[in-house]
């Protein structure tokens, strides 16, 4: 299967601090890839560098064979960042239409109404975003991320702050996109989500890949323990 993401010997320093030492991995087209690590391990930094928001100290980060540039890229990307917000004074519908136009949708208004109906927010279409709850705003952010059926979907802790019902809704949406051929990079601290959704994963520790492969390969490497147990084993000592 073709690699949609290739990261080769990526190193990232911030001043004298090295966040990523030497990281290499690939994400294959159409797979769901778990990007795991404790808080501050460099997951978000890696994704930002992959999307051209940070300049790597060294190494190559490629999407579809080349460094990502929204101006010249032929591949559609959906990115739900960890630090996320919206134009608080704008209405839900105006915001969705704006991003829809930026992403090249033919009829963003129609798409927006369909999506709002699906996530139960159709009655909020004319509301200003600041009037919505945190969870409702997250649904809008997710909508923006997936609206152009991206070939690569990058989700940085997408279920943070979601109740179980909305978590399930999000999982369903990810599954649907996966079936359509979207590759997904999923950062999460919920190991059940990884077990349920991911084909392969990487565990990032001390700026390098601590474990990398299919979920079953990783489990095998740790004596067939559950991912929860593996996570605690790998990162448990960090908070002591």
């Amino acid at each position: 299967m073709k690699n949609i993401v290739e990261i080769k010997h990526f190193r990232m320093n911030f001043g004298n601090k090295t966040v990523i030492r030497d990281l290499s991995f690939e994400v294959k087209a159409g797979e769901i890839f778990g990007f795991l690590g404790s808080n501050g391990s460099g997951k978000t930094t890696t994704l930002r560098a992959l999307l051209g928001l940070y300049t790597p100290t060294s190494g190559e980060l490629l999407i579809d064979g080349k460094p990502y540039d929204p101006e010249h890229s032929n591949i559609t990307i959906g990115y739900l960042p960890e630090e996320r917000g919206l134009y608080r004074k704008e209405t839900v519908l105006d915001t969705l239409i704006y991003f829809g136009k930026l992403k090249g949708l033919d009829d963003p208004a129609e798409w927006a109404m369909k999506y709002l109906k699906r996530v139960g927010l159709v009655d909020k279409a004319k509301e200003k975003l600041e009037k919505l709850s945190g969870g409702q705003q997250q649904k809008i952010q997710l909508g923006i991320t997936i609206m152009d059926n991206p070939k690569l979907l990058i989700l940085d802790e997408p279920t943070k702050g979601f109740d179980p019902i909305n978590r399930r809704l999000l999982m369903d949406i990810i599954s649907e996109l996966h079936k359509k051929g979207t590759a997904v990079i999923l950062i999460t601290h919920y190991m059940d989500e990884v077990e349920r959704l991911c084909d392969r994963a990487i565990l990032l520790k001390n700026g390098v890949a601590h474990a990398y492969g299919t979920i079953s390969e990783i489990k095998k490497q740790f004596g067939n323990k559950s991912l929860d147990q593996i996570f605690v084993e790998v990162y448990g000592g960090e908070n002591e």
């Binding site: 928001l53 929204p70 101006e71 990307i77 990115y79 996320r84 917000g85 991003f99 930026l102 923006i144």
Partner: peptide, 18 residues
């Protein structure tokens, strides 16, 4: 505004800064 409301990352993957 983009930075203050944490929209920068989302928007910069949709449109170039320029």
């Amino acid at each position: 505004e983009e930075k203050e409301n944490r929209i920068s990352e989302m928007i910069l993957t949709s449109v170039s800064a320029k």
